[in-house]
Each structure stands twice: as C-alpha cells, then as structure tokens.
C-alpha cells in the first residue's frame, strides 16, 4: 500500500532515474513526458489518444538516407535514450499493448516497436467506479481492476492505493522509495464486475459479409480517422519518404482503413471503393481477422470510438446488431 499523499513523492523519485510519462492536461488529457509529478493529473477517466502512440508514434522517423559518391548512406533513427516509465495506463489499454505485441512480434520482430516496449515500465491505475458511459471492457472479459500487462498496478482505496507488483521491474520501481510503501491488510483487493458478455460477436460476424447493415452504417459514417486513430489496438501505418532522391528521411505514420486512399492503388483502382467496404473492414478486422490470427478479439472495450465518433456511431450498438443478425 502507499498513501495517496506519498504518490507524487514516489513518482518524483522515479522521474529522476527514468523518463516519466503520464496523464497531463494539454487541451485534453494525453500521455506525455513530464519532468515532475505536479504536471500530472489524477482525476481523469482516460486519455483521448491511447498510449499506443508511445510505442507506435503517429510519426516516427525510421532512418535518414543520403547519396554520397555513388553509394547510399543510411543513418538509423529511433531508440530510447533512457528507460521510460508510463504512469497511469488503464487496464484496457494495458491489454491493448499485449495485443499489439502479438502484431509487432509475430513472424518478424518490429525492432522500433519492441525497443520502446521493452524499455518502458508500466504503472497501471485501476479504473474508477462508475466507469465512463462508453466503457465496456467487462463485456469483453477484461477486468478494469486487473494488473494484467502492467508491472505495477495501483487501485484507489480512498486515502491510499493498493499496490500490486507483478514483475521484477515493478519491484525495482517500488524499491526506489521502499520507505513509502507498507503492507496491506488481507482481502482489500476489489473485484471488478462482469458485464453482459459480447464475446460471441466473433463467432457471428463471419456470416454477415453481404449483410445490408454495413451499407446502412456507412451512410452515417463520414470516413474520418477518429475511431482508428483513437483505437488502442488499431496499428496500421504507411511509409513515406520526405526529402529528395539525394537525401531525406523515411517516416512511418499512422494510417486508417477508413480513409479512401488507404487501399487506393497507383492506377486508381480501389478494392474498397465505398464507405460500405471500409466500415465493414474495420469491424471484420476487430472481430474476425484479429481473432483468426491471434486467437483473441481485437477490441478492448475502451469506448473511445463511441465517445468521439463525430456522428455518434456506437461500437456496442454495432456489436449487438451483429450478434442479433449473425448466424454461428
């Protein structure tokens, strides 16, 4: 356990030895690098942009290149200067990182992602109750009080936090200020409530490829990138060279399957020509392709897409519709 009043003291100690990231109010709540704990906010539901951008930045330079005397010289970029600590990640987002690990460490290891992932210690913050109205992680079998995927989990118990340390790295962090921590009494761990399970969406969606629902849905959808960019598990990117043929940089930038040019080919042909195909792609990816490849639904129920959709499209409504319409 740690007293609430002592939390900032501990985080300041952490910030001395590590690059500390946490929730700050920068227009909206975002995970950003901080120098001291007074930049952090503690009463937040979740960040707008998920913490995936610390591991798969929206814009990331992979290397610089230049031509010199007939050869091409590459200068690698990326890499962390210091080990990082991310404070305040929610259990749904922690779970999303485990899903992204599958993607970026499948056949080939994505070194840019893995380097940041390995070099970051996660201090999770169990979710406050009641949850946001768009939250539905419990319907996907995720516990908003679970330490899964984090090194240390803090659970708010009024004037103190319950501290669960699950890894050696977590021990190291706690060890920095051992004097602030004290043992907990038995049975203080809270249990998360389970919501109505929506997990059968994965079994049902396959039968709905030709269903009229996707067209219906796409009429409302504007095709912007809000749902994908704010999704903690969406991870599509595009590579782009900036500069000239003599010198420049190669960047990797987020991309979105909701954009028309995501699948448009050089000749102008687009295999997903209308909103219908693009909307369908997003949900098939989450509930069909992802489980097929990695054995788990590609959604963690954070609710950001529902909360920020410009047109009020709600993923839970879609899931329920799929369950109602689909056959096993």
């Amino acid at each position: 356990m740690i007293k609430k009043a002592h939390l900032t003291q501990w985080l300041d100690r952490v910030a001395q030895g590590y690059d500390l990231f946490g929730p700050v109010l920068d227009g909206v709540v975002q995970f950003e690098r901080v120098n001291s704990s007074d930049q952090l906010v503690f009463d937040y539901a979740n960040s707008v942009v998920p913490p995936k951008n610390l591991f798969l930045p929206q814009t990331e330079c992979l290397f610089a290149f230049r031509r010199e005397e007939g050869s091409i010289i590459l200068e690698p970029r990326g890499g962390l200067e210091r080990e990082r600590v991310l404070f305040g990640i929610r259990p749904c987002d922690a779970r999303s990182l485990l899903l992204l690990d599958e993607v970026f460490n499948s056949d080939l290891e994505d070194t840019y992602y893995q380097e940041k992932r390995r070099g970051t210690i996660l201090i999770g913050l169990a979710c406050p109750s009641p949850p946001q109205r768009t939250c539905f992680c419990t319907s996907l079998g995720i516990d908003p009080l679970s330490p899964e995927g984090v090194d240390v989990l803090l659970t708010d118990l009024g004037d103190r936090y319950l501290v669960e340390v699950t890894t050696e790295k977590g021990e190291e962090l706690v060890g920095l200020s051992q004097e602030l921590f004290f043992p907990s009494a038995e049975g203080e761990k809270l249990k998360g409530e389970k919501g109505k399970s929506l997990e059968e969406v994965g079994e049902k969606i396959g039968s709905l490829w030709e269903d009229g629902y996707w067209r219906e849905l796409s009429r409302r959808c504007l095709g912007c990138g809000v749902c994908t960019y704010l999704c903690p598990t969406c991870h599509c990117f595009d590579l782009t060279d900036v500069g000239s043929t003599l010198s420049g940089k190669r960047f990797r930038c987020w991309d979105s399957c909701m954009f028309a040019d995501f699948t448009r080919m050089a000749g102008g042909v687009n295999p997903r020509p209308t909103g219908k195909e693009r909307v369908r792609q997003r949900y098939f990816d989450k509930f069909s392709y992802f489980p097929e490849q990695y054995g788990v639904l590609g959604c963690v129920g954070c609710g950001r897409c529902s909360q920020y959709c410009p047109m009020g499209i709600d993923i839970r409504t879609i899931i329920n519709e799929v369950i109602a319409r689909g056959a096993k």
Binding site: D26, V28, L222, G223, C224, F259
Partner: peptide, 16 residues
Amino acid sequence: RAQFERCIRCYACRDI
C-alpha cells in the same frame, strides 16, 4: 502552435 501540435490529423474537421 500549441493547438496545431496536438492535431492528430484524423480529418474529422474536414470530413464533417
């Protein structure tokens, strides 16, 4: 500058 720095270029402002 501080405003534009936050932009994630989701293009929602354009698309709406």
